[in-house]
Design a protein around this nucleic acid. Structure first.
Length: 599
RNA sequence: GGGGGCGUAGCUCAAUUGGUUAGAGCGCUGCCCUGUCACGGCAGAGGUUACGGGUUCGAGCCCCGCCGCUCCCGCCA
């Protein structure tokens, strides 16, 4: 070992010992006659002292020439700091190391950005931080996140092992399955014109593992989806992937509640309440306008379909007449919303298909709104009662098809909450976590443009048993045995009980999803075949590991919990990936490029 | 594919809204300093205002294009 102690280890008990520390020059305070250098490693920092009366001039001069973030190795004697010079801010603040020897292991160039001050470092342009990720990773915040991630991975493995799960690795080189997310393709040199695909998830392998008798599988699995990025979405990401045989939905709920309880206890030393609330999809949409409701604040959607049936206000009356609904929320205390904010909300509503956004401002005891003159006294009374309207409130409406109206108000609700938070009128404690299961999703959704049904989750999701007869007749009504686990409005994971009977699976593929039989065979033939040779009933779930860590770290972006994340455009600013390859490599793969020239 | 925000010194930001030589703090370089801990003091260097066009007597500021980062919509079985 090059060192005897780490930089957060020395205490008054070590006084008198000769020690060797290695680390980065965190800060250098050169007082001319004496130099203080704080040496930092991942554990903490320790003050070292260079006293010229006690040191060869050459060593002192080298210390004076050190720059921030240089890597050094120092040897010296631990001593108590002189009276009145203790530093209460750091755990090693009662001692210091009187240096005898200094070895400069790596003299650092001046840094592209400073990392010693957390305040400014966290505000540095992300582009620069991504390019110099190795510097960013030294920042305490990021280091803490990476550490927590490791800790949670370990406790996950411990918990899953205790529950009798086997960790099984599945292939990264898989086959293209064009349903679902766009895939990354890998050309196959051995058979020109054929390709592997990187898995969107180990879904099919984990089901095959169940047929293979593994019974309980888990994996902290890398997944790849070639879709556009978001703060919570990267091209490659990690899932805690789980599958079990001979179980029902409740078994998954109990397992995941146990796992999350353990994770929260380990990561935050917090006891979370289980079991989690269960909320049917229809209820989540009706009350919160979201299938991943943030239940930390209310501002729930109220229904006024009955009240506005036949209303003089055509937008509402017409919507109801057309079989739609009228919904409203009360953004308490938001009557102060600026014209710009109302416009933003209107734009938001329009982006979700609304024609406009009706609102009522309650100010100075008066209902201010372009629509109020169309409302009858009875209608006003209904609003007053159901929304508990008070001075300073802002009422927002959506009318139309049930799902669309709910979704619009759901988005408006979140926007309003952000505005209220910024104004200090809505306060949500950082340590509050509202978990819930969203259940009873529709198995299938209808794509109006392509005029066909598609799986709400994925095509292996089992219908609720009693709904199976409705598959071909009342497709819309079939519920899937699918569940999402949601916390604070974030979809943490989802899964389902799977179809394990080949005939049901075949019906879903061919008769409901309308995939031609030969294509079904080509894409999923091996699964249908596997299910013919003794497939146990099974189900599973996948938790977004990056999102989980981001929630625990209280950061909005998963880039903050991934060591080497990519940008929104999918590039790695440090390595410059992706990049062109030499023609020779393309020839070996029998690939020819037809890249359109930029004008 | 679409919409919004940002881009000025190595970093974080300013520039009286189109008007003199583009400033400050930190960092960097040099000098001074023996108890600092975001040490302090003095001096100095450092700019193609992302990039390319345009309008104008005059552009960091206005217009068009383009690149990059970011947020959102679409997309994410």
């Amino acid at each position: 070992m090059k060192r005897t102690h780490h930089c957060n280890e020395l205490r008054p008990a070590h006084i008198g010992q000769t020690v060797t520390l290695c680390g980065w020059v965190h800060s250098r305070r050169d007082l001319g006659g004496v130099i203080f250098i704080d040496i930092r490693d991942r554990e903490g920092r320790t003050q070292t002292v260079f006293d010229p009366s006690d040191l060869p001039k050459e060593v002192f001069d080298r210390a004076a020439a050190l720059r921030s973030e240089s890597v050094v190795r120092v040897t010296g004697r631990v001593r108590s700091r002189p009276e009145g010079t203790n530093n209460a801010k750091i755990p090693t603040g009662e001692i210091e190391v009187m240096v005898r020897e200094l070895e400069v292991l790596n003299l650092a160039d001046p840094l592209p950005f400073q990392i010693d001050d957390p305040e400014t470092a966290s505000r540095v342009n992300e582009e620069l931080r991504l390019k110099y990720r190795f510097l960013d990773l030294r920042r305490p915040e990021l280091a803490r996140n990476i550490r927590l991630r490791s800790k949670v991975a370990i406790v996950t493995r411990q918990f899953m092992d205790e529950q009798g799960f086997l960790e099984v690795e599945t292939p990264i080189l898989f086959k293209s399955t064009p349903e679902g997310a766009r895939e990354f393709l890998v050309p196959n040199r051995r058979d020109p014109g054929t390709f592997y695909a990187l898995p969107q998830s180990p879904q099919q392998f984990k089901q095959i593992l169940m047929v293979g008798g593994i019974e309980r599988y888990y994996q902290i699995a890398r997944c790849f989806r070639d879709e556009d990025q978001r703060a919570d979405r990267q091209l490659e990401f990690t899932q805690i992937d789980i599958e079990m045989s001979f179980i029902e939905r409740e078994d998954i709920y109990a397992l995941i509640e146990g796992l999350l309880k353990r994770i929260w206890k380990t990561a935050l030393d917090q006891d979370i309440a289980t079991p989690f609330k269960r909320m049917p999809f229809v209820e989540a949409m009706s009350r919160y306008g979201m299938d991943k409701p943030d239940t930390r604040f209310s501002m729930e959607l109220a229904d006024f379909t009955e009240e506005f049936c036949g209303s003089q206000f055509k937008v509402f009356g017409g919507a109801v007449a057309a079989g739609g609904v009228v919904k409203a929320i009360n953004a308490k205390g938001l009557a102060c919303a600026t014209q710009g904010q109302i416009e933003s909300m209107t734009e938001l509503a329009k982006s979700f298909g609304a024609k406009g956004l009706a609102f009522i401002k309650v100010e100075n005891g008066e209902w201010k709104s372009p629509i109020v003159r169309f409302l009858t006294d009875a209608e006003k009374a209904a609003l007053q009662t159901k929304l508990a309207i008070e001075e300073g409130d802002l009422i927002l409406f959506a009318a139309g098809e049930w799902l669309a109206a709910c979704e619009i108000l759901g988005r408006i609700r979140l926007y309003a909450a952000e505005v209220l938070k910024a104004a200090g009128k809505l306060v949500i404690p950082a340590d509050r976590f509202d978990f819930l299961w969203v259940v009873d999703f529709p198995l299938l959704s209808f794509d109006k443009e392509q005029n066909r049904w598609y799986s709400s989750h994925h095509p292996f999701t089992a219908p609720v048993a009693e709904d199976i007869p409705l598959l071909k007749t009342e497709t819309r009504k079939v519920r899937g045995q699918h569940y999402d686990v949601v916390v604070n409005g974030v979809e943490l994971g989802g899964g389902s009980i799977r179809i394990h009977q080949p005939d049901v699976q075949k019906t879903v593929f061919e008769e409901v999803l309308q995939i031609p039989p030969d294509e079904t065979k080509l894409r999923f033939g091996y699964m249908l075949e596997a299910f013919r040779y003794g497939a146990p009933p099974h189900g599973g779930i996948a938790l977004g590991f990056d999102r989980l860590i981001a929630i625990l770290c209280n950061t909005p972006s998963i880039r903050d919990v991934i060591a080497f994340p990519k940008t929104a455009k999918g590039t790695d600013l440090m390595t410059d990936a992706p990049a062109p390859v030499p023609a020779k490599q393309l020839r070996e793969l029998y690939l020819e490029l037809k890249v359109p020239k930029k004008e």
